[in-house]
Design a protein around this nucleic acid. Sequence first.
DNA 1: TATTGTTATACTCTATAACTATA
DNA 2: TATAGTTATAGAGTATAACAATA
Lengths: 165, 165
Amino acid sequence: MRGGQQKSTADAHDVPAPSAGAQDVQLGPLANFIGFHLRLAQDASFRAFARHTGVKGIQPGRFAALMVLHKNPGITLGELGRAIARDKSTVTPLIQDFKRRGLIERRPSKSDRRRVHLSLTDAGESLLRDLLHHAKVHDRVLDTLVGGKKAEFIRLLRKIYDGLG
Amino acid sequence: MRGGQQKSTADAHDVPAPSAGAQDVQLGPLANFIGFHLRLAQDASFRAFARHTGVKGIQPGRFAALMVLHKNPGITLGELGRAIARDKSTVTPLIQDFKRRGLIERRPSKSDRRRVHLSLTDAGESLLRDLLHHAKVHDRVLDTLVGGKKAEFIRLLRKIYDGLG
DNA sequence: TATTGTTATACTCTATAACTATA
DNA sequence: TATAGTTATAGAGTATAACAATA
């Protein structure tokens, strides 16, 4: 949360864990709000993921973008933005950064010269594979925490973002 | 979430909904990652909440801080930071903003003159009640989406942030 | 020496608006 | 007129480090 996010937490002191030291703090109605717990869980998940991959300077949002590029070679900037729910003006600098790092190729469309088709380079694919490994390790921890309820849990999460969209 | 969030979305054009227009986009392993869905759900929830309360310039993080202040009058800045999992240097400007808006009172501790005890003013309590109303409306939507699985769902979210902390 | 809170600073993510070039 | 992408700019949220006051 994507928010707002934070700097590289990979080598940071020790970022306070959500709810750490909050034992003696009263939460009131908050404790019964799905949105509140959703925020804490996402925050924790983000930080944990960043501990794995932050070293590479790639955070969850970037990772998702790379994955979309991998699975949809030739996608345009606008399509990518819609896929990851970000404005095109947010996607442009992201793409520029990827380009600067040699992770993607830009191929101008022949049929519509306004468009640019994007795809991962070998370096991009390689980095993605590496990130995927870390992401799997990370998500295995989440899997363990969620236990046998994973399918149900994802179904509910999906209902939330489909329902609120 | 993380991290970084966005500007007041209350009166914005129409913020792209997560996964909107992503129908034809392939997600690959992402589709099976809890962390990915968690991020989308939190993003959607955040935006929906901001649609309700963004007008007041209060977003989920602020709301949570106000609630903690309400339920724990006299709490210190550091304690508040630990409760909402944010560094003290993040909390200071937050508190200053609350103060500027007349939402809180600062009472220097007698026993330890480094500390400052914080509590909501009448205006702060009033705003909180108002926000609480909006939050309830918002969370009722989430409740509906999640259906009878709410307790289980919150339990899993809590396991995630407790387990990753 | 250690802790509380402030300040200075910097970085990431995000968006709106205005623009260029195409269509 | 409408759309794809860029640029300029701004704001929110976050953190690290250095600091002053106090313990």
